[in-house]
Design a protein around this nucleic acid. Structure first.
Length: 333
DNA sequence: CGGTCGGA
DNA sequence: TCCGACCGG
């Protein structure tokens, strides 16, 4: 659920500055890791790696972004995906095939010396494997940042945590947490505010989407918002060809969702997906505790095993200590 | 992505 | 001081 939904949300979001965002934030770990893995690469598409050939792009991303969050008064908790629902299998398989194809296209582009194409394909070949997950867990632990293992979708767990008032908002580039009922979603939470698009760099501001305001703005209920998602496509279904955000909104408002599905995709049963968005598996089995970073532990991990520069790591962590000292360590963490 | 450095 | 180019691992 991406582009299609974006144009109907255009007038239903607020642009803001970083100081309006202090609080606690449930970060969609899968989304963040994917961004790091796909973007933090050399111009030919090669990701950052240690001497042993293990990928480190995500570790760089987690370190510097976390430091920035803490500096801005944002205390993050990373929420990791658990077991996907059965009806996601088709999507998962499609994505696996797309990654394999991209991996081949990357090698081909390298042979032809087309670096821009190589970078694009390399990005699309990004895979969040078990090494990425376990090394992310380890780094977060050393940074004193809590993380939560969701029973199923991380977006759903993040939404639940905002609903319960355990965190202030959820953070993701995807809109799914809104369908899962997250009262507040923040997108574009990157410090640089710069995004490279087709060689051009443009500035993007953080944006906040408040679910209640969004529903009012579009004139739909949460159930209808889910129906819009299903029409344009979600992680769990491809959507209906030819139906974009605007059309989906009209269909849903006129109560024609069921008849349109029956007409266009008679073999498709949207009810399991609808039900999943409304009441996904979530857990209360977590504790949120922010601690001061274990500086020597982070240095041992990142510099000792992943070949990071000690100067860069220590100076990044020093910023957190300064921030903590301004408050008094205990009050802050 | 985010840090750094050098040139305007 | 601000921006673009380049580097990190």
């Amino acid at each position: 659920m991406g582009v299609a939904i974006r144009d109907i949300l255009a007038d239903c979001k607020e642009t803001l500055t970083w100081d309006e965002l202090s609080g606690t934030a449930a970060v969609d770990a899968h989304n963040a890791l994917y961004q790091f893995l796909s973007i933090i690469r050399q111009p030919d598409g090669t990701p950052l790696m240690n001497d042993a050939g293990e990928i480190t792009s995500h570790l760089s991303g987690i370190l510097f972004r976390t430091v920035n969050f803490l500096e801005m008064g944002i205390k993050p908790v990373f929420v990791f995906d658990g077991k996907p629902p059965e009806f996601k299998q088709e999507t998962i398989e499609e994505r696996r095939l797309a990654r394999t194809k991209a991996d081949e296209a990357w090698k081909a582009a390298l042979r032809e010396g087309d670096m821009e194409e190589a970078y694009r394909q390399a990005s699309a070949s990004s895979r969040i494997d078990s090494h990425v997950i376990t090394s992310s867990h380890e780094l977060l632990d050393l940074l004193g940042i809590p993380w939560v293992q969701a029973p199923s979708e991380g977006e759903a767990q993040a939404a639940y945590m905002v609903q319960e008032g355990k965190v202030t908002y959820s953070v993701s580039q995807d809109y799914d947490s809104l369908l899962f009922g997250s009262p507040v979603l923040v997108r574009n939470l990157t410090v640089s505010g710069r995004r490279k698009i087709r060689g051009r760099t443009i500035t993007v501001n953080p944006e906040r989407i408040v679910l209640s305001a969004l529903q009012k703005c579009l004139g739909v209920t949460r159930e209808q918002l889910i129906e819009i998602g299903i029409l344009v496509g979600t992680d769990f279904n491809p959507g209906i060809r030819g139906i974009g955000g605007k059309t989906a909104l009209k269909i849903v408002r006129s109560g024609a969702f069921d008849s349109v599905i029956a007409e266009k995709q008679p073999e498709f049963d949207p009810d399991p997906i609808r039900e999943f968005f409304l009441s996904p598996p979530v857990t209360d089995d977590y504790t949120l505790e922010w601690r001061a970073p274990d500086v020597e532990g982070v240095v041992e991990m990142l510099c000792g095993r992943y070949d990071f520069s000690e100067d860069r790591v220590r100076s990044a962590l020093a910023k957190v200590s300064v921030k903590a000292a301004q408050k008094t360590l205990d009050a802050w963490f």
